[in-house]
Design a protein around this nucleic acid. Structure first.
Length: 233
DNA sequence: GCGACAG
DNA sequence: ATCTTGTCGC
C-alpha cells in the first residue's frame, strides 16, 4: 500500500493504472542524478502461477560496492493486488517491493530491477515506477523483449551491444553478457542515463548472464515464496 | 480482426 | 512467473 508520488493513491485496477501512466511517465528522470554508490541493490518478485489469491513475494537485496558482498536483505508479501498484465507489471509488484524497501537496511544508492524501465510501450516499465515511488536511482534489466526490436547484429561475444528500437525510437539496449546466452535488455529506470545504466550492469556481471544484484534478488524472492508459504510473510 | 505480450 | 534432471558445450 505505497503511495504514488504526489500523494496519489496506488491504483487497484488495471484501468486505473493505465490512466495514471502518462503523468507518472512524465516524472521519470532520464539524466544522471545519483550520489556516490556505496550500496547497490537488486529487486525482484516471485509468485505462483495460476494463483487466484494473487500473492506476490518481493525481495530487495543490498550489496556493497565494489565487493558485491551481501549487506542486507528484506522481503515482503502482498495479496489481492493486480494480476499480471503485460505493460502493467510494475503495478502488480511494486507494492510488495516498496514494503520490502521499508524494511531494508542499509538502503541501496542504486537499484537494479528485474524487468524493463523505459523499454516499454509507454516508456514506463517497472524500473521506472519503482524508482519513482522510492525516489531512488533505478535501472531496468529484462531477460526478454516487451516491445521493439534489436537493431542490427548482436555478436555472440560478451560486451556486444545493439540498440533496442521501437517506433523509430531508441528505448534501451540489448547487451550480450555471456557467450552463447540470450542477451539482457537494459533501459533507463529513473535518475540514471542509459550509458550509466549500462556501466553499472556490466560492472555487476561477475561473469554471469544476469548482474549479481538481480540474481541475488531473484533467489531471495524465490526462497521467500517457498518458505513464506508456511511462515510469516 | 489477429497476433504479441517484461514477470 | 513456474513446472524440473540431466546433459551438452565452452
Amino acid at each position: 500500500m505505497p503511495c504514488l508520488p504526489g500523494g496519489l493513491p496506488f491504483p487497484e485496477t488495471a484501468a486505473a493504472a493505465r490512466l495514471l501512466v502518462p503523468e507518472l511517465a512524465a516524472r521519470v528522470e532520464t539524466a544522471d542524478r545519483i550520489g556516490a554508490v556505496r550500496v547497490i541493490g537488486g529487486a525482484d518478485a516471485s509468485s505462483t502461477r495460476f494463483d487466484p489469491t494473487r500473492t506476490v513475494h518481493a525481495a530487495i537485496v543490498a550489496l556493497g560496492w565494489p565487493a558485491l558482498s551481501r549487506l542486507g536483505e528484506a522481503g515482503a508479501t502482498t495479496r489481492g493486488g493486480l494480476p499480471y498484465v503485460p505493460g502493467l507489471l510494475g503495478f502488480r509488484e511494486v507494492p510488495a517491493l516498496a514494503a520490502a524497501w521499508a524494511r531494508l537496511d542499509p538502503r541501496p544508492d542504486l537499484l537494479l530491477v528485474d524487468g524493463h524501465g523505459m523499454a516499454h510501450p509507454k516508456g514506463f516499465g517497472i524500473a521506472c515506477l519503482l524508482g519513482l515511488v522510492l525516489d531512488v536511482p533505478s535501472i531496468g534489466v529484462a531477460k526478454s523483449v516487451l516491445v521493439g526490436e534489436v537493431e542490427g547484429a548482436l555478436p555472440d561475444a560478451p560486451g556486444a551491444l545493439a540498440p533496442l528500437v521501437w517506433k523509430g525510437r531508441r528505448i534501451g539496449v540489448a547487451l550480450r553478457t555471456r557467450r552463447g546466452a540470450n542477451p539482457v535488455y537494459v533501459s533507463i529506470g529513473h535518475r540514471v542515463s542509459e550509458a550509466t545504466a549500462l556501466d553499472w550492469v556490466e560492472r555487476c556481471l561477475r561473469g554471469r548472464r544476469l548482474p549479481e544484484p538481480v540474481r541475488a534478488a531473484h533467489d531471495a524472492a524465490g526462497a521467500l515464496r517457498l518458505s513464506g508459504l508456511t511462515a510469516l510473510g
